[in-house]
């Protein structure tokens, strides 16, 4: 084989190699290493040596009330946050699913909350939630309602984070569902109308089934991202008051990078990963069944 032929044959391999190596570094090395760490006790804050402790970290997780509280809070964000994002996002998408002048501009304006940095979002909401001087309480007072202690009350703090999360991520649901709606050909609407279907029937019998794959994907993505919610907690409440609004990933951060308990933090990350993988598998199974049907 000529020199050129040989070079040509291996070229695709050279193209892929750097990326494959890098991906291996990110997905394989940290996964194995942090699994090994999760079986150890390693307090690097006090300079202690790494000690193998088996599954003790995992046992500790199940009795750690602070961890269980953070798990509950993540559950609240999933249920109320992602739920509201979906409902509201679908509503806006249905409103935008028509043609009018300036539609692109309006859709893009709707997207701004999710485009700006979560850190900026956190700062903005922290000002808005200020008990005495924030615009939100001012508006409540104007409407004749009393001020709400958005960030200082243990019951309220997590819901304040959820409201900011809804504000930030509803646009994501909206834009993806809108893309799904627009992929539905006009002829189907025409056919449904000819058959005498009313709006509600078109929605439940035509749009929902056709949109189902898109709905599943978009909710799954939001669920995976919600487990990682960190920036908003860090900036709006820093988990407070006390530990009232800590989420799993925030407590995970504190354990690893404030208390420097590397082993315990790793086991927490693995526990989280296991839950996410289970949820994702359920969703993907439902999704595939639909694809095949």
């Amino acid at each position: 084989m000529s020199m050129k032929g040989k070079r040509e044959r291996y070229l695709p391999l050279f193209f892929v190699l750097p990326t494959v190596i890098i991906i291996l570094i990110i997905s394989i090395f940290p996964l194995i290493y942090s699994f090994w760490l999760s079986l150890c006790e390693w307090e690097i804050g006090i300079g202690a040596d790494r000690v193998f402790v088996g599954l003790r970290n995992y046992a500790r997780l199940l009795t750690d009330s602070r961890f269980l509280n953070s798990l509950m809070n993540t559950g609240r964000v999933l249920f109320f946050g992602v739920g509201a994002q979906f409902a509201l996002g679908l509503g806006v998408a249905l409103l935008l699913n028509r043609s009018f002048r300036g539609k692109n501009l309006v859709s893009t304006l709707f997207l701004l909350p999710m485009m700006v940095s979560p850190v900026v979002v956190g700062c903005i909401w922290r000002i808005i939630y200020h008990y005495r001087y924030g615009p939100l309480n001012y508006m409540l007072n104007m409407a004749g309602l009393s001020s709400v202690n958005w960030l200082g009350s243990t019951d309220m703090a997590i819901y304040s984070i959820i409201l900011a999360d809804i504000w930030e991520w509803t646009p994501f649901m909206m834009i993806v569902l809108l893309a799904g709606l627009q992929a539905i050909p006009d002829e189907l609407y025409e056919a449904a109308r000819v058959d005498g279907a009313n709006r509600w029937q078109i929605f439940t019998y035509m749009l929902v089934p056709l949109l189902r794959p898109v709905m599943i994907i978009v909710i799954l993505i939001r669920i995976m991202d919600t487990f990682k919610i960190f920036d908003l907690v860090f900036l709006i409440t820093f988990g407070g008051p006390g530990q009232a609004s800590e989420t799993v990933s925030f407590y995970n951060y504190l354990t690893g990078f404030r208390h420097f308990s590397m082993g315990y933090a790793s086991s927490m990350a693995y526990f989280q990963l296991a839950i996410i993988v289970i949820i994702a598998n359920i969703f993907l199974r439902v999704w595939r069944r639909r694809e095949e049907a």
Partner: peptide
């Protein structure tokens, strides 16, 4: 088509990874 068929899963699994799971080894 070099190893392309498993790629979807790779991408998805990286999105699933809690930040601390990859952050901790990278930090060390």
């Amino acid at each position: 088509r070099i190893g392309g068929d498993n790629f979807a899963f790779w991408i998805l699994s990286i999105r699933m990874l809690p930040p601390v799971a990859s952050l901790l080894p990278l930090f060390l």
